[in-house]
């Protein structure tokens, strides 16, 4: 089952995307986007894993230990920060959209054209 993490990642990606597409509430749209993004964490961490390897913390393990790839873990950290900031910005937009249009249904945002 060496491909299982990637299958889960693809599933998360598609489910999140479906949430974005089918959403009738902008808050749900934003949260679905975070589900899409969490699939990228799984891909990154899955890619960097080495069988039988330990976390890349070398404080109290023998110097010859097999370690997982630390680069992808750094990328996941960046990813998490980006997700937090993007979510905050989008939710701020939702707050303002709700003030302007009195609704958080994306279908009601057509008045944007005015």
């Amino acid at each position: 089952m060496s491909f299982l993490p990637y299958v889960v990642a693809a599933w998360l990606f598609v489910v999140g995307l479906w949430g974005v597409v089918s959403s009738q509430n902008l808050v749900r749209t934003v949260l679905s986007l975070t589900v899409v993004q969490s699939s990228t964490y799984l891909v990154l961490l899955g890619v960097g894993y080495r069988s039988g390897a330990q976390a890349p913390i070398v404080a109290d393990i023998p110097a010859s230990s097999r370690l997982v790839d630390p680069v992808v873990q750094v990328l996941v950290l960046t990813d998490v920060v980006i997700e937090a900031t993007v979510t905050a910005l989008l939710l701020a937009l939702v707050v303002q959209a709700h003030k302007r249009f009195g609704s958080v249904d994306p279908a009601d945002l057509r008045t944007l054209r005015d």
Binding site: S2, Y49, L77
Partner: peptide, 28 residues
């Protein structure tokens, strides 16, 4: 790459070089 068989060199080098060169124990 198949799960558990990553062959990227960058991470291996970072794991090997950061502790002696920078005296840090958390490579991330």
């Amino acid at each position: 790459p198949a799960f558990g068989h990553f062959r990227g060199l960058y991470g291996v080098l970072a794991n090997r070089l950061e502790p002696p060169l920078r005296h840090a124990t958390d490579i991330v």
